[in-house]
Design a protein around this nucleic acid. Structure first.
Length: 994
RNA sequence: GGACGUGUAACUCAGCGGUCCAGAGUGCCCCGCUUACACCGGGGGAGUCGGGGGUUCGAAUCCCUCCACGUCCACCA
């Protein structure tokens, strides 16, 4: 006697038990061997905090692929890890430190801040990996990497060195968002724009050589006039055409600057149609300067926001003071034309809440574009990999964005003015030209550098820049090469670049750095290129493109064959889920309430090939467990207290805001969408439970498929079809299809029909044995199919089944694997797929449904029901002898023993079931008027359909143009409809008579 | 401004040229404590497939256009 299962599935118990068991058994470990590899590298989550629903989706899909391929016999490796996420992490920790100790990073110093971040990383990485485990992610945890660990650091330095040596990395100027208060640059996503009161001044510059001619322009920042290097008009603007090429003089300092034409910068419709150009302090003007480098570029600001030497008499003045002073001076000189107050959008630093200044600074870049020295363009390489089909996108449309972005070939700025990250391995020697005579490069060092360069231990380049500085840049290949680094440090005029690398620089190497590159490890050889990368579309450019690029550059091979882009999750209002908006859900909340299987099932179910998917979020009332849907007005912290509509008690909506009232309980978050997955797990649990209760006397043995009764052959046909379709769906990354196929087969076919039909057979000694074998064999297949999506419930049931029927399977039994995680993916003979059997079975289903409908609709007694069944059964006479045994029970009739019935007695007040041409006496059981109305509607609907088909069939083009099977099928439909309409009309007559 | 996506039953979505006289789950109405499951079973009602135009023998499905919503990118002297 097998152990009896509990009445309902308990996800928590299963998760606890099997997470440990799987880990202990090491099922998910992978090492290179003779099998074919299947590899996925995880998109490393940021160590900034916790995983959200987007991660749940992303990782579930990867796990489905990994588990499925593992079952197929591949050596499957899912490489886990996390990302140091430079700016985001440093900002989080800085905020925390400031909140707790009122200290800024400058108070702590670089080393201490970095140490604090490492502490933070230790805690949050553990939490994130824990969440992944809870979801059942079958990663090889021994291989967990971090983008800032030693292995990854090695790859970063090697890549940087090679790119530096090959001339792909260069030092250049770029405008950054400068926070003058914190004296640091901030990333675009660390700024916000706010409408701010400001001025809108209009001035004029005198045009040289033309008397009494001025050029007028407007600005919101008059002080930048000190850094103007041109004024610009549209080339087609008739008003200024004659002035192009002439010069103007800036009255403030007497500098002469040209009037240039640039269609991209000047808009004749706006303002005066003329713009001043300050390349060093405005992004657009900077872009203009890049198109017209001859105009020059002048930086007027010091890092603290005061004016530098270029400010002339305004030098040392704060930029805001200078703004008024400059405007005043212009007015005194007579070049002021007017000022209006205006609200302008102004960029602020999120960190200091002070206005951003665009500031020119030294940055490192990776050259993406074409080169004239014959070396390949990195962007072009990455584009070719996709256009040639070596890297394929699923869905394919996403490749357009990838190609368009790379096609711009914009150089990649890789330096960040941060402390948390890979430091740029470059030492800088500089000498200013003013002191040229007094100062030379140290000859001993220069000699050493030349030698080391020869040996490949470093590379060096000389550069000049516009502020009269001459530099030697020395890139060190290996920081552990102390002979080199110490020598460099010894000559004090070297300083190491304080910047760190963009976090994407290290993530770009992820597919090979995690495998140990640049070491020639067995892993790199075996697992690279990886099989598929699974991510969402927002980082196709930032991440995917760069992985392709570095993979090709470093290993001369693509990093992955496929890129699967899944949907982005949104809330019920179509807005992106995020912690700060308060519409996000913690996957652990869902796991706790619904189980990991339910979470996973739903994630798979919503992964269609659309680009967005919505999940409505509800708060769970902490008092009475009612689900309270979140409304739009609750978001963004606007609502801090909600009353439960059920128990009326107050609670705080789930989200990141602190409550004003610490006593107020916080709601967990949930969504009714997960009911389906939870219920499905329970359904399978109970189907197995039923089987185990009926497995007494089970003996393993082969089944002769051809000799099996119709219902068995139907089930096997459906099982074989479903297995095939699920496999095909997985191959095509159609995840929602996988969920649908499995769900429908298990619930609507296996449970609703086959199990119901087996109930009678299990009581019949002769039929019991094959029924048990088919049931056990089918369930075995089902669990294998379900395992990638819902591993916990699958494993629970697999192991329970292992106790009762360790040898099972179709058509012949075999010893089952000890865990469903290592069970082979099923495959059944195509010969099992039998359209004839399926058609006959479908007729039987229609019949049973027809009988049920009559019963329910008309509240008829058993005798009438039996009558209906017997008469309807004529319609499936061919199978009646086989299936009659089921029709009665399935239709809820105690005994159905009558044989085929050919007589069709008729009496007023009956109903014809048109599908089966059977007449049922119903006198007194129905309301004739209501029934007549219903029939009229049905007749009208069917007539309409019939007319449409007749019109089609009358059309010669259709008959000759459409595929023959379609024409044939339409003919059959028409005949069918005709019969039905006739039967219904007969019915209607009866109703009207009665 | 550009690119992409979405708009199908009250809700969430599937279907993406004929196999759909339009499907599923939830919710709704009726019946059912039938010995796997009330996280259940059976039945029912519910949609002019966002609007308009076109291509086609045939359109929810392809094209154009408009409307609404969303995401990303660019830009706003």
């Amino acid at each position: 006697m097998a152990t009896e299962l509990a009445k309902a599935y308990d996800p928590k118990a299963a998760q606890e038990r099997f997470l440990r068991e799987w880990e202990d058994k090491g099922y998910f470990r992978s090492d290179p061997d003779g099998r074919k590899p299947f590899t996925i590298v995880i998109p490393p989550p940021n160590v900034t905090g916790a995983l959200h629903m987007g991660h749940a989706l992303n990782n579930t899909l990867q796990d489905v692929l990994i588990r499925w391929r593992r079952a197929q016999g591949y050596n499957a490796l899912w490489m886990p890890g996390t990302d140091h996420a430079g700016i985001a992490t440093q900002a989080v920790v800085e905020r925390l430190v400031f909140a707790q100790e009122k200290k800024t990073r400058h108070d702590l110093g670089r080393d201490e801040l970095v140490r604090r971040i490492w502490d933070w990383k230790g805690r949050y990485e553990a939490r994130i990996l824990g969440q992944l485990r809870q979801m059942g992610a079958s990663c090889d945890w021994r291989r967990t990497r971090f983008t800032l660990d030693d292995t990854c650091a090695r790859a970063v330095r090697e890549t940087f060195f090679r790119m530096f040596r090959d001339g792909y990395i260069y030092r250049g100027k770029r405008l950054v968002n400068w926070d003058a208060h914190l004296q640091t640059s901030v990333a675009d996503d660390e700024t916000y724009t706010e409408d701010t009161k400001g001025g809108f001044w209009t001035f004029k510059y005198p045009v040289n050589g033309v008397t009494d001619t001025y050029i007028r322009f407007s600005t919101t920042r008059p002080e930048t006039m000190l850094g103007d290097t041109a004024v610009c008009v549209h080339p087609n603007d008739e008003r200024y055409k004659s002035l192009i090429g002439k010069t103007v003089t800036i009255p403030l300092n007497g500098r002469t600057i040209p009037i240039i034409a640039d269609g991209q910068l000047a808009d004749p419709e706006l303002g005066t149609g003329c713009v001043k150009v300050t390349p060093a302090h405005d992004p657009n003007d900077y872009a203009c300067w890049q198109r017209h480098p001859e105009i020059g570029i002048i930086n007027i600001l010091n890092p603290d926001g005061t004016l530098n030497d270029a400010g002339g008499e305004f030098k040392g003045m704060d930029r805001y003071k200078a703004r008024d002073a400059v405007a005043k001076k212009m007015e005194e000189l007579g070049f002021f034309e007017g000022k209006e107050d205006r609200v302008v959008p102004l960029k602020y630093s999120d960190r200091s809440k002070t206005p951003i200044e665009p500031l020119l600074s030294d940055q490192w870049f990776v050259r993406m574009g074409d080169r004239d020295d014959g070396k390949p363009s990195l962007a072009q390489m990455a584009m070719d990999a996709v256009t040639s089909g070596r890297v394929k996108f699923f869905p394919e449309r996403y490749k357009d964005g990838y190609l368009a972005w790379l096609g711009e070939k914009r150089d990649w700025c890789i330096s960040r003015q941060l402390w948390w990250g890979h430091r740029i391995p470059v030492w800088v020697l500089q000498r200013t030209w003013q002191t040229d005579d007094e100062y030379k490069w140290h000859p001993e060092l220069v000699e050493k550098i030349a030698k080391w360069k020869q040996e490949g231990r470093l590379d060096s380049k000389d550069t000049e820049d516009d502020v009269m500085v001459d530099r030697m840049l020395v890139c060190v290949r290996d920081e552990g090469d102390t002979e080199v680094t110490e020598a460099l440090e010894k000559f004090g005029f070297f300083r190491r670049d304080p910047d760190v690398l963009d976090t994407w620089f290290s993530s770009a190497l992820w597919p090979h750095s995690t495998l140990g590159w640049p070491e020639p490890t067995p892993e790199v050889k075996y697992y690279y290129p990886t099989s598929v990368l699974c991510t969402s579309r927002d980082i196709i450019t930032l991440w995917v493109a760069r992985m392709v690029l570095t993979g090709l550059y470093n290993l001369n091979d693509i990093p992955f064959h496929h890129v699967y882009i899944h949907a982005q999750l949104q809330d019920a209002f179509g807005e992106r889920m995020s912690k700060t908006t308060g519409n996000g859900i913690d996957p652990l909340d869902i796991i706790e309430r619904y189980g990991a299987d339910a979470l996973r099932f739903q994630m798979v179910a919503l992964a269609g090939d659309t680009q967005d998917s919505r999940v409505a979020v509800s708060n769970v009332c902490p008092h009475c467990d009612t689900l309270v849907p979140i409304k739009q007005e609750h978001l963004k912290g606007r609502t801090k207290k909600l009353a439960c509509p059920n128990c009326k008690k107050p609670f705080r909506p789930g989200g990141p805001w602190t409550s004003d009232d610490p006593e107020l309980m916080t709601a967990k978050q949930a969504s009714e969408r997960f009911d389906q997955g939870r219920n499905f797990a329970n359904k399978m649990w109970n189907a197995t439970r039923f089987l185990l209760l009926n497995l007494d006397g089970y003996t393993p043995g082969p089944v002769d498929v051809a000799a099996l009764p119709t219902e068995d052959r139907w089930l096997l046909s459906r099982l074989a079809t479903t297995t095939k379709e699920v496999t095909a769906a997985l191959e095509a990354y159609k995840f929602s299809e996988v969920a649908r196929l499995v769900y429908d087969f298990v619930w609507s076919e296996f449970c609703d029909w086959y199990i119901e039909m087996s109930k009678g057979r299990l009581k019949d000694p002769a039929a019991r044995e094959p029924a048990q074998r088919v049931l056990a064999g089918a369930l075995d297949g089902i669990l294998r199919l379900v395992q990638p999506v819902m591993p916990f419930v699958a494993e629970s049931l697999w192991q329970a089944l292992n106790e009762a029927a360790p040898e099972r399977g179709l058509p012949a039994p075999a010893k089952a694997e000890e865990s469903v995680c290592i069970a082979r993916w099923p495959a059944y003979p195509d010969a099992w797929i039998d359209a004839g059997v399926e058609t006959r079975f479908a007729r039987m289903q229609e019949l049973v449904r027809g009988v049920r409908e009559v019963r329910n609709r008309y509240q008829v007694d058993d005798k009438t029901r039996l009558d209906v069944a017997v008469k309807c059964a004529d319609a499936v006479a061919a199978d009646f002898n086989v299936l009659a045994a089921f029709i009665g029970p399935l239709a809820g009739i105690a005994n159905l023993t009558a044989g085929p019935n050919t007589a069709k007695p008729k009496q007023a007040g009956g109903i014809v079931r048109p599908e089966f041409e059977a007449y049922v006496p119903l006198a007194g059981l129905i309301d004739p008027a209501a029934e007549a109305k219903r029939l009229e509607k049905q007749i009208a609907d069917k007539r309409k359909a019939l007319d449409a088909i007749r019109a089609k069939l009358a059309n010669e083009k259709f008959v000759s143009g459409a595929p023959p099977e379609v024409v044939q099928q339409q003919r059959e439909s028409a005949a069918d409809l005709e019969k039905q309409v006739a039967a219904l009309e007969e019915n209607l007559k009866d109703m009207q008579a009665a």
